[in-house]
């Protein structure tokens, strides 16, 4: 390239003449470049989700005042009504003082029917296609708790087999959640009652938390979430099951819009065998507390140092 340059410069020295570019060609080239650039951006015309100005400048959840929230919730409700024709209510239930949620799952009882998986979907408005499920039920072989030999795809007819045991895994609501440490923008954090939540309006979609989770508990909306109006659950929480955006992370929140009102989470209510137990860890009379004190419980991947509040037991 610079051979030319040298020659040019030599020429310059000799002829006092500079290499030039004609104005005509320069402008024509610039026109071509801009035309091609503009046309190359044409797929943006069909963008599936374009944030509104308000959404674009919306602050972090923790920086929102009560008036801001009111306004935002009203806009979201109106948007849901417009998109789905469903009159939804978005609540922002706050943690209850003195409550810390915990979960116990009795592997000795679980029959692997996967009803919890679908009750969760029914409650939490996850995308149906591509399918997002918070709970994964692993069919485990005898004599091992090796996750690598577990079967995630066993068909319905292989549920409740006595030769295997079944291990549902969802977010473990860790005391030391690695996912919130790694988030560059604090879009995910642990609430006072121990639930790890995501601000769907703040997440930048870097998926670092998904890489940092030892339980594969987080789900990312690679595509625009799809759910039909009939299946939309109108009882929504701002930090839990309101419709999600494309390109943001989501996860199990122990159905906080339900549980903070004193109800049971959907997965627990639907369990036909009573394998699941949910309650307030700080209440010595709660079921979970009694199980943890009386039975031999364990947590998944203790070596990861995440201190989960989701306990497993092999009780009768």
């Amino acid at each position: 390239m610079s051979t030319e340059e040298k020659r040019n410069n030599e020429m310059e020295n000799e002829d006092q003449q500079q290499p030039t570019i004609s104005r005509r060609y320069f402008l024509a080239g610039a026109a071509c470049l801009s035309a091609a650039t503009v046309v190359s951006l044409s797929p943006l015309l069909n963008a599936e989700e374009v944030p509104s100005t308000d959404e674009f400048i919306q602050k972090h959840y923790k920086q929102l005042s009560d008036e801001d929230k009111k306004e935002i919730f009203a806009k979201l409700e109106a948007g849901i009504d417009k998109q789905y024709g469903v009159a939804a209510t978005i609540s922002d239930t706050q943690p209850i003082e003195g409550v810390e949620f915990a979960y116990v799952l009795n592997l000795g009882r679980c029959i692997g029917c996967r009803k919890c998986v679908y009750a969760c979907m029914n409650e939490n408005n996850q995308s149906r296609s591509p399918q997002k499920q918070y709970i994964r039920v692993l069919k485990m072989k005898q004599g091992t708790v090796n996750l690598e030999t577990s079967n995630h795809d066993y068909p319905e007819k292989e549920a409740s087999s006595e030769d295997f045991f079944y291990m549902p895994v969802a977010c473990q609501q860790c005391r030391e959640p690695k996912c919130i440490e790694v988030c560059p923008v604090k879009a995910t954090w642990k609430e006072k009652d121990g639930i790890v939540v995501v601000d769907y309006n703040w997440c930048i979609g870097c998926r670092y938390c998904e890489a940092a989770c030892p339980y594969h508990a987080r789900r990312f909306n690679f595509a625009k979430p799809q759910i039909s109006a009939q299946e939309l659950n109108p009882d929504m929480g701002y930090l839990s099951n309101r419709p999600r955006y494309m390109g943001v992370m989501e996860k199990c929140t122990f159905c906080l819009h339900k549980t903070r009102r004193g109800e049971y989470p959907a997965c627990m209510e639907v369990c036909p065998t009573g394998s699941r137990k949910f309650g307030n860890l700080r209440d010595p009379e709660s079921e979970v507390r009694k199980i943890i004190e009386q039975e031999r419980v364990f947590v998944l991947k203790q070596e990861a140092g995440t201190l989960p509040k989701f306990y497993y037991t092999f009780a009768k």
């Binding site: 029917c113 066993y154 292989e158 036909p272 065998t273």
Partner: peptide
């Protein structure tokens, strides 16, 4: 002993996902 017969299907993945399905 439980003889509960209602069970729900396995999760699904997009067609593009190359995933090893375990032998049932």
């Amino acid at each position: 002993k439980f003889k509960y017969k209602i069970a729900a299907p396995a999760p699904t993945w997009p067609d593009k996902t190359l995933r090893k399905v375990r032998h049932p």
